[in-house]
Design a protein around this nucleic acid. Structure first.
Lengths: 338, 338
DNA sequence: TTGAAAGCGCTAACAA
DNA sequence: TTGTTAGCGCTTTCAA
């Protein structure tokens, strides 16, 4: 049924080898043969069997990406955009993308190990890095190519791109402090997530630089979803002495906080300041629009993918460790619009 | 470096064939040999080379999914959730997922053709079906297994899951008409998208059943993003005789419309009714919360994936054509909360 | 119960 | 310029 090199070889009366070489444009095959082979291949509708090529070449031109899914209602706008970034770049560079979904946890490593050991992928892209990240430990130790979006506290060295979340949150803290807020709350994310750790740290430092105190009970932790943003913010509002400003660790929770505030009849941007982090498309078009830190997710996907492919091909990478400078986007929810 | 059957064979002093059979649990190998082989394989850390298996077996246990990306800012919450649905199911059934991104358009078919002809995938999942869908035409004609989320006007028969968008939008139309609205607008999506076509049709029918007229100029078309929801809604508000209700073809645009309305100082749910379609997580937690039609995206992904795998394995599929019954979720934006 | 041999489709070193 | 040969790692007849 499918056309193979053998079929073409038979048709043109040459060997399989010659056909292969002709098709690859090697110069040690006569122009006539080459032309004939190409013509016949075209007529017969030949497409190489990539699986066979892979077995021979011992690499797959495929990169792996495992989505850290949580519940079934997994709908973080972050991921589709990031995926688009790596997908488009991968396609441009002739790579396929093998995606799977796996909740973080115990047998998570199995998913990685299988793909590594069975030669299903040439490299991995890692996201949502954790402070102790077993995935990174494993890949480092086996010396398998990967690039991460995010850092870790593991001791090994590896290429990554990350946004300077610490600085980003300092900017938010300064902004809020400059607006005169004294009772400021923070909706954090689980501290084992590296980015959550940095952001909280930056926020604390930022406030203390401005001489503003961050009370312990003003720090709550959410699971990054909008739903939890609502819940955590509501708890903050229920405090005997509620905050006048809330900084959330990401936009989704900030959006939830806005919703919670409005449900209370608070005017966001006036009675209460709220800020996010990520600048997802929704941030710009929420009402009021969300003050946040911009994170160029698509471009990060693009960069990370390119770095990985360069690493796979053992080409040099300009910047092994890229820390992107965060940009504060002041909109309406902080009440700080100039 | 990597451990192969040959290595194990050498170690246990048996042939590659025997080792292979032992590892597969065939019963024509002596218990002792079998035990020994397994033990050694384990000790040596053997993992089968899946590429080699695939070449031999002539199938890949991989399913293809091509994301119809549009701009770089591609962040539809729909896709991450759908992907989680198919990803988890695929993993459970032992399948991998080959994802790529490609804008709809001319050389889109190439992406499909390559994967089909090179035996990279055993089947495809198609989303965002169009009225004339070349992808479906191609796959039908080559008789390649696929399952679609959505229908088409192509004449061929194929398995699909779809939500009854026509009925869904009729429910919305009825709801709005029952609330007494007479000047109702619709933010449609490009009509070549099958679901957009159905939804518009259902809306028109629904209104006419209630004796409400839908003026032509009250129908505008957006690109499904929140940004465009803002824009289209703003245009509607600028009409000399603006609508008292706006139904958007999807939640994202509805969210945009809410934002546009609030910017005008309109109280959504009182001065203006707004509805969406999809029931993305954000719908529940927007303020006011969004009246919409629920679409179980994760489960649809799950179903579609299972159907495809059954089809690949040539097992029977219970329901080749599943039309899900839509559920109206009445919240605050329509002002119809009981 | 086991092994030899062939073959999946392709590439590449070597020889002619 | 071309063909022969071997081999990537695996599965599967077939024969012993």
């Amino acid at each position: 049924m499918p056309v193979t090199l053998k079929d073409i070889a038979k048709k043109v009366g040459k060997s399989v080898t010659t056909v292969s070489r002709a098709l690859h444009g090697y110069d040690d095959v006569s122009p006539e043969t080459s032309a004939l082979v190409r013509k016949v291949a075209d007529e017969m509708g030949y497409t190489p069997n990539i699986i066979a090529q892979r077995l021979q070449k011992q690499h797959t031109d495929t990169i792996g990406f495992i989505l850290p899914t949580f519940g079934p209602r997994f709908s973080d706008p972050f991921f589709s955009e990031f995926l688009a970034g790596i997908g488009n770049k991968a396609a441009k560079l002739g790579y396929d993308l093998l995606v799977s979904t796996h909740p973080p946890g115990d047998d998570e490593l199995k998913a990685y190990r299988r793909k590594v050991q069975s030669y299903l992928v040439d490299g991995f892209i890692i996201v949502r890095t954790r402070r102790k990240d077993p995935r990174i430990g494993y890949l480092c130790q086996t010396d398998f190519p990967f690039v991460a979006f995010g850092r870790t506290e593991n001791s090994c060295d590896f290429p990554f791109v990350d946004e300077d979340g610490e600085l980003g949150m300092r900017l938010i803290a300064h902004h809020l402090a400059d607006l005169g807020h004294q009772r400021i709350a923070f909706i954090a994310a689980p501290d084992e997530l590296m980015f959550a750790h940095y952001r909280l740290k930056g926020f604390k430092n930022g406030l203390s630089e401005k001489g503003v105190r961050l009370e312990e009970k003003m720090i709550v932790t959410g699971d990054l979803t909008q739903r939890d943003g609502v819940k955590q913010a509501t708890m903050l509002f229920d405090l005997p002495n509620p905050p006048t400003a809330i900084a959330a660790c990401n936009d989704l929770m900030a959006l939830g906080a806005i919703s919670a505030a409005q449900k209370r009849g608070l005017r966001v941007g006036k009675d209460i300041a709220i800020t996010g982090f990520d600048n997802i498309p929704l941030a710009e078009h929420s009402h009021p629009s969300l003050t946040t830190i911009h994170q160029p997710i698509y471009q990060i996907g693009d960069m990370v993918c390119e770095m990985l492919i360069r690493r796979i091909k053992e080409e040099s990478i300009e910047a092994e460790h890229t820390l992107l400078e965060p940009k504060l986007v002041i909109r309406e929810t902080s009440g700080g619009k100039l």
